[in-house]
């Protein structure tokens, strides 16, 4: 054993963690401060060695799933993720793709994501068939319109505090 010998596992684990935190630093373009990872858009990440421009390099492959396939933010999110990963030291090439399955569902939104949406945007997340709760007072909301400002959101009303609530749904 010489001093130059690198333990094989450690740098890769660090690199993978750095890549994951780069992806988590990308916010949803419509919800600044809410990470795409907390919204459940990240399906898989792969860090591997492969040919990059004739030599061997580190390639990162990312699979994302959209909240709905016609979402106009797809290209913007893809390029934001691509840029964030390329900025990680040790990464040589990146490939970010939108997957057609599995389908996104609201229960992919993390607890932290739900809290941020409720606190910062008065947006509730509709989980399975449970009643949606008002982000302001916690009362059960009632649906006003299935058509909100986006395909992935409807409009509810809180009968208790009269708040107008947007609800993220599948």
């Amino acid at each position: 054993m010489t001093a130059q010998h690198n333990p094989p596992a450690a740098p890769e684990v660090d690199l993978e963690a750095a890549v994951l935190s780069a992806i988590a630093s990308v916010d949803d373009p419509e919800y600044p401060g809410v990470s795409i990872v907390d919204l459940g858009l990240l399906e898989h990440v792969e860090v591997r060695n492969g040919p990059v421009g004739g030599t061997l390099g580190v390639i990162v492959g990312v699979g994302l799933i959209p909240t709905f396939s016609g979402c106009p933010a797809l290209e913007m999110i893809r390029s934001d993720v691509d840029r964030a990963i390329r900025a990680v030291a040790g990464v040589d090439d990146v490939s970010v793709n939108w997957l057609t399955s599995p389908a996104w569902t609201p229960d992919r939104v993390s607890m932290r994501g739900r809290e941020a949406l409720a606190r910062d945007f008065t947006v509730a997340v509709s989980i399975n068939n449970q009643a949606t709760r008002c982000p302001r007072c916690g009362a059960k909301t009632t649906e006003q319109s299935m058509f909100g400002p986006s395909r992935c959101r409807g409009i509810h009303r809180c009968p208790n505090c009269s708040e107008t609530v947007e609800v993220m749904r599948g």
């Binding site: 058509f147 909100g148 400002p149 986006s150 959101r153």
Partner: peptide, 9 residues
């Protein structure tokens, strides 16, 4: 859809 949704809210 965004603009109409905003109008609605």
């Amino acid at each position: 859809q965004d603009e109409i949704g905003h109008g609605h809210l």
